[in-house]
């Protein structure tokens, strides 16, 4: 809540002036703030994902940005100006004895876009639910490691959608909905998102796993703490944004692939903190912020995630 008096240069209208003088307004008076931050060393950022879908899987290594008020946006999809770490040795292994040394991206159009963006890909390892995966990274004399269990995921029974009238001047919202049996007697965590079929070349590239539409991070996490055993018509939320005024990016004629992915409790917590960062107000009404708790060792940032995937497509008919 914010109270301010209006200021105006206009001297034309007496009524106007009267209001300017005596009217009090409650509105969010948020302005730029000159905040000087201390210098710090950049840190390694790991963005790794292995799923139950067929490989290859990808790991991205970059450096963090300590001059935080610089944009790293390049204007080109799937790229940013983050400093890539290109000379790393990366090995993913599992508890069944599979070992895979990652190499540079193969020759695809994604490779063109992501050239020198710090991506590495697997050659042969296959993610299987119910197993634990290990990530080992060596950069010069520094070693980083992470492990993540891949929980099983229930099958999606069906998907449908509903249409909600959009605000005046905006198109209608098509909201996908999910039906599945939620296994009881165990703690489950889910990450749900959707993307347009044909829009993305690879379903495993974690960068693309989260489809960024304008200023939206499309994902939705869920704990089964309050869920019914029989989950019906679960609305797939459209994601998070610092502005939070978006709508569902689905139009007649689109085919949507909806994915239900398993998370460990630790992974769920990680994403929860990331999502909360969209809402930070500096500690006035929300908790003082803190770093999300990574599963990567040795002071690195980011996360190595293993998720089983259950997916179903739905086509929105043409009008």
């Amino acid at each position: 809540m914010c109270l301010t008096i209006l200021n105006s240069d206009s001297m034309k209208n007496y009524l106007h002036q009267l209001i300017i003088l005596f009217v009090l307004l409650l509105s969010g008076c948020v302005t730029d703030f000159d905040m000087e931050l201390k210098d710090a060393e950049p840190r390694l950022v790991v963005d790794g994902l292995i799923t139950s879908n067929p490989g290859p899987y990808y790991v991205r290594l970059i450096k963090s940005n300590v001059a935080i008020f610089n944009s790293t946006d390049t204007g080109i999809p799937f790229t940013d100006n983050a400093e890539a770490v290109l000379d790393a040795l990366i090995i993913i292994s599992d508890d069944r004895g599979q070992i895979d040394t990652l190499g540079p991206l193969d020759n695809s159009n994604i490779r063109y876009l992501t050239y020198e963006q710090g991506y590495y890909q697997t050659n042969k390892i296959q993610g299987i639910p119910g197993h634990t995966y290990y990530l080992n990274i060596r950069i010069k004399d520094k070693v980083y490691s992470a492990e993540c269990y891949m929980p099983t995921v229930p099958l999606i029974d069906s998907v449908d959608y509903i249409i909600e009238k959009g605000e005046i001047g905006k198109s209608d919202n098509y909201i996908p909905r999910l039906y599945f049996e939620e296994p009881q007697n165990e703690e489950n965590f889910y990450l749900i998102n959707y993307y347009k079929v044909g829009y993305h070349e690879s379903e495993n590239l974690s960068y693309l796993d989260f489809i960024v539409h304008y200023d939206f991070w499309h994902n939705f996490i869920l704990s089964d703490k309050y869920l019914d055993p029989n989950v019906k018509a679960l609305r797939v939320e459209n994601g998070s944004s610092p502005n939070d005024q978006g709508y569902y990016w689905i139009f007649p004629g689109d085919e949507i692939n909806i994915r239900l992915m398993s998370l460990t409790a630790g992974t769920y917590d990680y994403y929860k903190i990331l999502l909360e960062q969209f809402e930070y107000d500096g500690g006035t009404y929300k908790p003082a912020p803190a770093s999300p708790l990574t599963n990567v060792s040795n002071g690195a940032l980011g996360f190595f995630r293993a998720s089983a995937v259950s997916q179903k497509k739905i086509k929105i008919p043409e009008n």
Binding site: V45, D47, F78, D80, Y207, G283, A290
Partner: peptide
């Protein structure tokens, strides 16, 4: 509490 920096993660 203010951040030490930012890191790009999944876009």
């Amino acid at each position: 509490t203010v951040p030490e920096g930012t890191f790009n993660f999944q876009g």
